[in-house]
Design a protein around this nucleic acid. Structure first.
Lengths: 207, 207
DNA sequence: ATTTATAGTTAACGGATGTTCTATAGAACA
DNA sequence: TGTTCTATAGAACATCCGTTAACTATAAAT
């Protein structure tokens, strides 16, 4: 019988230890904490966990166990977004040079996604999306978007980028402002280009 | 001669170690890393740093050094905010019972403040502040607010709470919506009660 | 039924590590 | 001048800890 439960228990214990005490447990800490009977049992499970990529250890180093799951993510601030300008989409050239600035965020905010980036809003052209000058939007680089999703849309005819909720309707696409008091606009499918999904909006005030 | 520089160097080394490797250095790591010559020198400085409250160690525990400064802050989500309802202000009764939910945020977002709390917006009554239904506002519990600051204001006559930028003018107070296209309202000073300062606005989409 | 992989036990080695003791030197201070 | 505080140096100690080896036990696979 495979016994993953004991390894879950060990992981939980490590998590607890990191959380409560601030540093990782030793093999013998785990031994006692999980009611195991031998250090080599612990060693065995730790080896397995490391093979599974769930923890990382530095050989011979006391208390070097780390959980792989990340709590804090650094999101690159790739540029600004303004009316009449396509938004910077992470391309090969954008990734090669490291971004000038990064934002530290918790996975609470974005869902552990790796393809998330941030853009700073310039100007008040996004007011209908309830987004102010200086706000920061977290974008996820996705090829497609589901109905109802808030997306960054490039309007080819108007040469303009806008943030709207997208709804595909027969023969047309409805772009609905976040502000429900405002009316939607309708565009031809071939007139738009979805440039990314809006994951979150951040507004920092009074600094 | 006092030598705080070497302790700053040690702190920096600890920070670097925690950052790069994920766990704290040993006394001998610091010895080599800071070009010191004896473990007892390191011990001495660590004792001093601990007395100064800048680090914490567990006696006899390897790699237990922790920096006191916090990077991730848990902000209590104290309740909801809606028109016609005073916002929950952290009082004695609110703090005694732990909040149902907390938000993990980095000090990037809020400035290491301890008196910060979060409120969830219910309804669209804050649209003029560019704040949507479901948005989360981070409030700082402060007694006074400076001019131009975005604050939560309780309007006594109207029995309503609103988020506006506050400007004290002779004989009246101007409450300016964040949306610059909208006109300010003017109120008598005795008609308002500042309930807190808005530190940030968070909007999480598509989950 | 036999083999194989996983899990557990016991014991021990050797090195890493926190701590302590003693001694020295310079600066501040009264 | 003597005292005290801080910083430094070297050495030594006892313990903690990661690792390994040899062996047994059990479940799964063939």
């Amino acid at each position: 019988m495979r016994k993953p439960e004991i390894r879950e228990k060990i992981l939980e214990f490590i998590r607890h230890s990191l959380d409560e005490r601030g540093y990782a447990p030793t093999v013998r800490d785990i031994l006692k904490g999980c009611n195991l009977s031998s250090t080599s049992v612990v060693q065995h499970h730790l080896n397995t966990l490391e093979k599974e990529g769930r923890i990382h250890r530095d050989p011979q180093v006391v208390r070097s166990i780390q959980l792989i799951k990340k709590d804090v993510v650094e999101v690159p601030l790739l540029g600004t977004i303004a009316a009449g300008k396509p938004i910077p989409v992470p391309g090969s050239d954008t990734w090669t040079t490291p971004p000038d600035e990064t934002l530290k965020l918790t996975t609470d905010m974005i869902g552990n996604k790796s393809n998330t980036y941030a853009l700073k809003i310039k100007g008040t052209s996004m007011l209908d999306a309830l987004i102010d000058d200086g706000d920061i939007v977290l974008m996820e680089a996705v090829p497609t978007a589901e109905n109802g999703q808030m997306v960054a849309v490039w309007l080819k005819d108007e040469q303009e980028v806008t943030l709207k909720k997208i709804y595909r309707e027969p023969g047309r696409i409805r772009l609905q402002p976040a502000n429900k008091q405002m009316k939607p606009i309708y565009v031809k499918p071939q007139n738009i280009e979805v440039q990314g999904k809006v994951v979150a909006v951040l507004r920092r005030l009074g600094r």
